[in-house]
Design a protein around this nucleic acid. Structure first.
Lengths: 300, 300
DNA sequence: TCGCATACGTGAATTTTACTCACAGGTCTT
DNA sequence: AAGACCTGTGAGTAAAATTCACGTATGCGA
């Protein structure tokens, strides 16, 4: 009888996000669901309250004043619960989590973001471990692993898709001047990476571009290759994620943009998926940061 | 990322109720689910927080201090949301709801509880309508109806079970003195009701008790029959619900208790089930009041 | 004014989650 | 020692949430 006016609680998150963004599509992106799911939950809430909460103008969605007010209250209420839940979670033993990640992604994407992690997920201390290929959770005492799905994952691990791999040639800005507008890379010096020797071939196959190199060189790791590219030695082929900071700083440019190669990065975890508060928080942070990577796909 | 510590919201209600009652079984009763459902939701929450929230002593469940604190916060948060939701619901048109109910139940059970309804569900104004048998929602402009399932309900109406019918003989206390302890009702004056002529037969069949009446009399309605019983005319056979107030006041007694006759009372509503805030509130109140009826089954 | 991109709604199918049922194990009561 | 009570749990079922694919309406650029 108490709380007989309470709407279905599961509708609250989609609703709040929709009000905040004034858009179901944006809310859906934030919550990592389709806009259809959000649409239906918002409808549920509206039916439950017996009122329309948004002005539907085909282009834009306008939350009514009531909706804004309700959203504010919901935000507040969830904040309280969240805070209480965090406190309880963190008061429990809570050792550090060990996260395994492919070396280059670790060095050039994850490590630069650790300060942000420390700010946004202060409750969790993370140990990092560079590694690729199959994950041995038990043997290596690993809790979470980021891996590209270029090999089969064991059935029993829980997986969360993070972002699509997109690869493209990168080089020093002054070298790019000679290339931009050109239909192919013929005559350039191509830098290969021995841990992913087929990267250039993949790219040529996907884009149909030619690349008859004047010279070629193979280096051990992506980060060495990128170092060489930044030094002006030649043109490297690299995943977007590992070079996006360099692109932003202008140390590298990607004259031909990036193309998906069909693979994706996933977050793997052992049996109990994200029923652990720390794992949940870390997962949420990773999903937020990596979805940013995906949204930047436009700016290629 | 915000709210990454948030546990599954659906676990909160069962959890809060469990803390409040220090019992899953009691919480389950309150929420009208089985104890198994509550047990699982509480486990979900505990897994999500990574902590145990109750001390399990086989006999009793003891919420930890953390659990109490969390429950208090949840209570508070849900209060806020509930209040906001009510306000929005009630700000919308919200005409009165019409509730149809079988005449005797209406007069002897529902009407005496209207003051309680007014206090606990102030937002909703209810129109009452006495009626039995098939419900014509559209034609008679009825929103909700309470009916016994002694006839088939149409497929498309939404139904909520309220309580089991239990019937038993009742009479004036001084008359009961002669009966109590006796194996049968032979020689008594039996009062029948023409709207349910088979009630005495049902009771005899279920209990196996004999009743060779010295005299018999048939009255039009249960409330007339009960009037007669209270006047000492004879023994009536009545549903528990309609006489429980009389029993409490001592105006009638039920020397043989009450037995389920296999039927139940249900709340019927037209298409949109309880997606309307007013309907939801009224339903919640009815369920609370009627579940009380069922819990009293012990005291027969 | 014609695509074209964007954003929401929706029927059908699917996956996930919640719930019930029936039983097990443990303790307190009588 | 038997019965009442409470919680946990495996298996099966019911319900809810989500996706997918498609439909519609509109603003925007050519």
């Amino acid at each position: 009888m108490r709380w007989s006016g309470l709407p279905p609680l599961n509708t609250l998150l989609p609703f709040e996000a929709t009000v905040r963004h004034a858009s179901m599509t944006a809310a859906a992106q934030e919550l990592h669901v389709t806009h259809g799911a959000v649409s239906r939950q918002v409808q549920n809430l509206e039916r439950s309250l017996g009122t329309s909460l948004f002005e539907r103008q085909t282009r834009a969605l306008r939350p009514t004043p009531q909706a804004r007010q309700l959203a504010a209250i919901v935000r507040d209420a969830l904040d309280q619960i969240d805070a209480a839940a965090r406190q309880i979670s963190q008061h429990t033993p809570a050792g550090p989590l060990t996260l395994s990640c492919e070396p280059t992604l670790l060095m050039r994407w994850l490590i630069p973001r650790l300060p942000d992690l420390a700010v946004n997920v202060p409750d969790v201390t993370v140990h990092l471990s560079a590694g690729g290929g199959p994950v041995f959770f038990e043997r290596d005492n690993i809790d979470l692993a980021i891996r590209r799905d270029d090999f089969p994952f064991p059935e029993e691990v829980s997986r969360t898709r993070l972002f699509a791999e997109r690869i493209g040639p990168v080089c020093r800005p002054d070298l790019a001047a000679r290339l931009t507008g050109a239909a192919d890379l013929t005559g350039a010096a191509l830098l290969h990476t021995s841990t992913r020797p087929q990267a250039w071939d993949d790219w040529r196959r996907i884009t149909g571009m030619k690349a008859e190199p004047a010279s070629q060189q193979t280096l051990e790791h992506f980060y060495l290759t990128l170092q060489a590219a930044a030094a002006g030695v030649g043109i490297a082929i690299a995943p977007y994620a590992v070079v996006r900071d360099d692109l932003e700083r202008g140390q590298l440019v990607a004259p031909f943009g990036f193309v998906p190669d069909g693979t994706s990065y996933h977050l793997l975890s052992r049996q109990p998926p994200e029923q652990d508060g720390r794992v949940r928080q870390l997962t949420a942070w990773l999903r937020a940061k990596t979805s940013q990577l995906e949204n930047e796909s436009e700016q290629v």
